[in-house]
Design a protein around this nucleic acid. Sequence first.
DNA 1: CAAAATACATAGTATAACAATGTATTATTA
DNA 2: TAATAATACATTGTTATACTATGTATTTTG
Lengths: 111, 111
Amino acid sequence: MNEIFVTKWKSQVKKGTLTFVVLNVLRENEFYGYEFIEEVKKKTAIDIAEGTFYPLMNRLKKEELVSSKWVEQESGIPRKYYVLTDTGKKTLKQMQIYWEELSTSIKKISK
Amino acid sequence: MNEIFVTKWKSQVKKGTLTFVVLNVLRENEFYGYEFIEEVKKKTAIDIAEGTFYPLMNRLKKEELVSSKWVEQESGIPRKYYVLTDTGKKTLKQMQIYWEELSTSIKKISK
DNA sequence: CAAAATACATAGTATAACAATGTATTATTA
DNA sequence: TAATAATACATTGTTATACTATGTATTTTG
C-alpha cells in the first residue's frame, strides 16, 4: 500500500530532524559515532544510516556546533567523541523554539 | 547568532513535513491553493512558499494521494480545489503512525 | 489609474539522507 | 584456526524536496 512513497517520505522527514536529534543527545553526554547510532536505535524509533551520520557530523563541526576528539582505546580502533560547543548550545535553543511551534501546529491540524 | 544556519535548518525540517501537513489539512476540508497557504499561515507557525506548494501538489496528484478540480468563479480567476483520495487517506494513516513514533522519540531525548 | 491582493505556475539552486562501498581491528563461532 | 560478524570511521554518487525568483492574469483598493 504505497510503501515506496511512505519509505521515501520517512527519509525526507529526517532531513533537519537528525540534526536536531544529534544536538539534543549531545546536550547531556559525549558520544562517539558508532555508539551514538546504536544508542538512538535502541532508545528511539530513529534509525540513522552511517552514511548519513558521518557527513552530518562533519557539517556540524564545520559550523562549529560540535567539536570532536580522538580517544585511544586500550585495545581496538580509536574512537572519535563528539562534544557540543557553546555555539551549539545556543543554536539548539533557537531550534527548540521552532520545533515546539511546529509540533504544536501539527498537533492542531492532525487531531 | 547563527541565523543563517537556523534558517536553512528550518527549511530542511519542512521536507516531508509539508506533505504531512497538506494531507492532514485536506482530511477535513477541500481547499484551493492560495486559500490553503493563507489558512495554514494564519492558524499555525507554518509558512509555505507558493513555489513549494504547487509542485508539491502536483507530486501528490501524480502519486494519486490527492485529486483536483477547477471551480469557476462568478468573478475572478478560477480556483483549483484539492481533494484527498482514498489512497491518500490510507497513506496518511501510515504516515501518522511514524510521525507519532518520531515525536515521541524526540520528546524523550529533548526533555 | 496605479498598486496591492488574488490565483496559478515553472525553472534553477542548494541541501541532506541514503545505498553502496571501502579500510581496519577485534570478537565470536563453527 | 579460519571464516564471519561486530566494531569503528569514512566517502562517492544518487535522489528528492524546499526556496527564490520570475512569470501570467484578474480583481480590488487607495
